[in-house]
Design a protein around this nucleic acid. Structure first.
Lengths: 385, 385
DNA sequence: AACGTGTTCGCAAACGTTGCCGATACATAA
DNA sequence: TTATGTATCGGCAACGTTTGCGAACACGTT
């Protein structure tokens, strides 16, 4: 039988039911209930022990605070002790535990970025720009992609919030209509900078390209090349990016006395699939357009592909202009005319903005929108002479 | 004057110099030195307080352990208390602190991925595949890019190590010749899976495409189309990917009794810049090649661009085959023949592998290499009839 | 009322690090 | 000597969470 953990007697011990699946005992002598502590299980492999600051301290017979000071150029330390500690750290292959550090400092030195997709060159380039700036400032960048899904986007924000990022850069999915998951960050005073895909509804810090100017220049260019019946295959109507490009399209038409025909304006969702369908529709119109201004390059490329299949000559029968200057635009056919956005600079600007906000600089206290210049790149798809 | 913190007397207290910039006092009675603790500074804004498990506990008058149990389906809890706690958590907008969680569990539910670049579609696609698998398994994916720089790659591994990722997927930069920063992970028993850019020297878990077969098929295809003087613009010689593609190139030539000419084999570094230089060199040869098998698509595209500038006809005067099936390959000229790799599946396979290793499944105890099939996509750049 | 059994909850020790403050040993100035 | 300043180091309480184990109850049975 079992011996009592108090008096050590065996005779007085009796079984007394179960607790959490384990046998409970009662010692009648001590009137004491107890369960048996689980056996040591020494054959199970000991969990790998990462060397900590305490290991170094014990090895050298100093306190862990001293070790901490040695590792962080704190003035209150003797150069000799410091050297000894650094050597020992090297010897034990010490790697600081960022988790513990972040926990006590309640700062992670990490900013998150959420992008909708990786299918075009646009977002990867933005990321490269942002990462460059943040790296120099000592911040890590955690990249997440929503795959144009609202649900994944929400899950991403949850994960970043749980991991206590110090800031967030975000370009939202085309599905997103509700912005509560972003407001959670503001509620916790975590700086957020929206770029490219922004909404006016959120009066926050933004970085965008000059979509209006770019669109205006693109459509003006089409008009100057003799196109008169110009369609626009746009983006989701809730995004500012779509609204601005549409506005540029409208104003350019109006400047030259052309009518804005509702049947020639369609809202897509940035994807090639939808673009193909809508392009089909446009070209099937009784009075089909002689040019199409597309909201982005994948859309424009779908249009070019479709035109080729229908044996429409580009640019003679159909002029096409895209937006973003994806690398493909340079190589497809005789080149795709497109509006080039400063992608890397957009990442840099957004990163610089979130940095300023995290540092609490006055300049960034109030919401600010930074607009980067866009540039029309003229290629073969729109020039007919 | 000041009262002594020990005896409480005022008379015996006198100023006794400064320590760390603060006034020090000496009580002659107690012979005790002391400084005044700094005032509460209540006018300074309290640091933003994230609601914690303790806040919920206090609000409801229960212990934090009870709250923790309520939030994790622990059996030892009354359904009513559980409901009350969950409601209160909702009300206080509680967000768990993943940092503290990871610290005590010494598990972060995060795996890192390091890729060399974002300029081609390849790595983004791999990431999408990996993220899909990991998401379903409850893991977060932290994406980092080295920009083909060894130094940044090392910094990335340091950051991931400090943040205690549970696993790592990596495709190394072309600069990397030293692998100690990766060995650090093995030393700490953190599973690492190498994909695409792997080296034989590291006898570890790998996921690669069948580079040999792909290269062989590509070169055989060129030969069958009448090309006889076929050059190879390869990758960095230390990477297995380069070695295998070169081996496929050699074996295909030998199968058809063609000589492997050293002057027609050049090692590049995957970048378009270097590719342009080496392509120039190849085409400047006295006996220039009539076809080039490029190690990747950007290289092949540089070759096509150069050929166009020199008014070489493709495929009549020069056959070109690339590797990876980048989207551009479909659109450039009459299409670029290329070897398609299952990018998303590579990400999925690597993720599944690292998952198995993290779970300690027997199947993955020993290093294993998974080889995915590659497929030759024949387009206009190599077919002359 | 005592006993036997199961349920529910609190206590406290981790996890690894930081930083305030006290303590000590000297060094130097009055 | 005495008063003051400097240089180093240790103790300890945080940071927010998980978890093993004991303790307090509640309830039904003798």
């Amino acid at each position: 039988m079992t011996t009592c953990v108090k008096c050590g007697k065996k005779e007085t011990v009796m079984k007394a039911g179960f607790v959490r699946g384990k046998q409970r005992f009662l010692c009648k002598n001590c009137d004491y209930y107890f369960t048996l502590p689980k056996p040591p299980e020494k054959n199970i492999r000991r969990k790998r022990h990462q060397t900590t600051i305490i290991d170094i301290a014990n090895e050298l017979g100093v306190s862990n605070s001293t070790v901490s000071r040695a590792l962080h150029n704190h003035p209150d330390i003797n150069p000799d002790t410091k050297k000894a500690i650094l050597d020992k750290a090297q010897e034990l292959d010490y790697q600081p535990n960022q988790l513990a550090h972040s926990l006590v400092k309640s700062r992670t030195n990490t900013v998150g970025i959420i992008v909708p997709e990786f299918l075009t060159q646009f977002f990867p380039n933005v990321i490269v720009g942002a990462q460059k700036v943040l790296r120099l400032a000592g911040y890590n960048l955690v990249i997440m992609q929503s795959g144009e899904s609202y649900d994944i986007e929400v899950a991403n924000t949850k994960a970043l919030l749980a991991n206590r990022v110090d800031g967030l850069l975000v370009s939202m999915s085309h599905e997103t209509n509700n912005y509560d998951h972003f407001r959670n960050f503001e509620k916790r005073e975590v700086p957020v900078v929206y770029f490219n895909r922004v909404v006016e509804e959120l009066g926050t810090h933004k970085v965008v390209a000059n979509d209006y100017q770019g669109a205006f220049a693109a459509v003006e260019h089409l008009i100057q090349n003799g196109y008169r019946r110009i369609a626009h295959l746009g983006g989701p109507p809730n995004l500012l990016i779509s609204q601005e490009r549409l506005r540029g399209y409208r104003d350019a038409l109006q400047k030259y006395g052309l009518l804005v025909l509702p049947e020639l304006v369609i809202h897509g969702d940035f994807t090639a699939q939808k673009a193909a369908i809508y392009a089909q529709y446009l070209l099937d119109l009784a009075e089909s357009p002689d040019a199409i201004f597309a909201v982005n390059d994948p859309t424009a490329i779908e249009i070019l592909t479709l035109a080729k299949a229908r044996e429409l000559r580009v640019p003679q029968d159909l002029g096409v202009v895209g937006f973003s200057d994806d690398p493909i635009a340079l190589y497809i056919g005789s080149g795709l005319t497109t509006v080039k956005q400063p992608t890397a600079r957009m990442g840099e600007a957004a990163a610089a903005m979130v940095l300023g906000m995290m540092r609490g600089e006055e300049e960034w206290l109030l919401p600010k929108t930074e607009v980067l210049q866009a540039e029309l790149i003229i290629r073969g798809s729109s020039v007919r002479k």
